[in-house]
């Protein structure tokens, strides 16, 4: 197999893993799978592109500004589109439709403001998108950095879950009412997780922008591949998401090089279906006991 194909699969897979982790952050305490997540990633890329390329802000300032801005949008989404639905019924799936509606609203508003043209985003200082020609692979220093940063981010997120707050999140995911009795406020955790999940999505967008450009077409694409990584890696499992992200990224790259680029999505779709058929809970999860 061409080593270059593999390398690019890993790079793309890192991005998918990050989207999957952002899904997980949001999912764990709320049991909501945000259909607007792809658009939040896109929004992060667009805001960041505007702040750096157009407004000329320094990299770090723009980075922080983007995360806070998109985090707040996530919070607004939770307040308007998710909390009222969950208040009506904990088990219903009305939020599938409301978060989808949110995604439509965000993507069309962004399309209105920014237009359809992709914006070029430069990598931060010291890194570049020029390929390095290491052996047979033509990978850039920025892409190598992205793969490493992804590993670090997943490790950090996993560490946070081991803290007291993290355990509270898991407790709520397990049993909302029992957690409530132990003085954990699921409402506040839900708000925080939407803020953090959205900010993480925005960060993914910022990291993806130098490679994929900032454009409105980012959203749907990353939504589905992020879902694929999250589902294959077992929902809620961040390390699983990382490995599944690589699997999806490499499968896609290999599929595209063997068949034609038009088959990218089809190949991923079939892999996801096959995994879910054989292991419904994903590759790295255990089947949940039903609770009555």
């Amino acid at each position: 197999m061409d080593i270059d194909v593999l390398a690019h699969g890993i790079v793309a897979g890192s991005l998918y893993a990050l989207v999957a982790v952002s899904f997980n952050i949001l999912y764990r305490p709320t049991n909501v799978f945000n259909f607007a997540q792809g658009e939040l990633v896109m929004l992060g890329a667009m805001i960041f592109a505007s702040l750096t390329s157009l407004a000329g802000m320094p990299w770090l300032v723009a980075f922080a500004g983007t995360l806070v801005a998109v985090g707040c949008i996530g919070l607004v989404e939770e307040r308007i589109a998710v909390a009222p639905i969950l208040a009506r019924s904990q088990t219903g799936t009305g939020w599938v439709i409301t978060t989808l509606a949110t995604s439509l609203i965000i993507s069309n508003l962004v399309g209105r403001f920014w237009g359809p043209d992709p914006i070029l985003v430069k990598p931060p200082a010291l890194l570049s998108m020029d390929s390095l020609d290491i052996g047979a692979s033509r990978i850039s220093s920025y892409e190598i950095a992205l793969v490493l940063v992804t590993l670090v981010l997943v490790a950090i997120v996993e560490r946070v879950y081991r803290t007291l707050k993290g355990k509270a999140v898991m407790a709520v995911a397990e049993d909302r009412e029992a957690a409530l009795l132990r003085g954990i406020d699921p409402g506040s955790l839900g708000r925080w997780s939407f803020f953090l999940g959205a900010a993480f999505a925005a960060m993914t967008g910022v990291l993806a922008a130098p490679i994929l450009y900032a454009s409105t077409s980012l959203g749907p694409d990353l939504l589905l591949k992020g879902f694929a990584a999250a589902a294959v890696g077992s929902i809620g499992n961040n390390r699983g998401a990382l490995i599944a992200g690589y699997v999806i990224g490499v499968t896609e790259a290999v599929g595209a090089s063997l068949l034609s680029p038009g088959y990218q999505e089809a190949v991923i779709f079939i892999v996801v279906l096959a995994v879910l058929l054989l292991k419904p809970e994903g590759l790295f999860g255990s089947p949940n006991a039903r609770t009555v």
Binding site: A81, I85, A101, I105, S107, N108, L109
Partner: peptide, 19 residues
């Protein structure tokens, strides 16, 4: 050209206020 935006707004509004 506003169609999808209106669709999104309607979906959200209906689910919230008229399920």
């Amino acid at each position: 050209s506003w169609r999808m935006l209106i669709y999104g707004g309607m979906l959200l509004g209906l689910m919230l206020f008229a399920p």
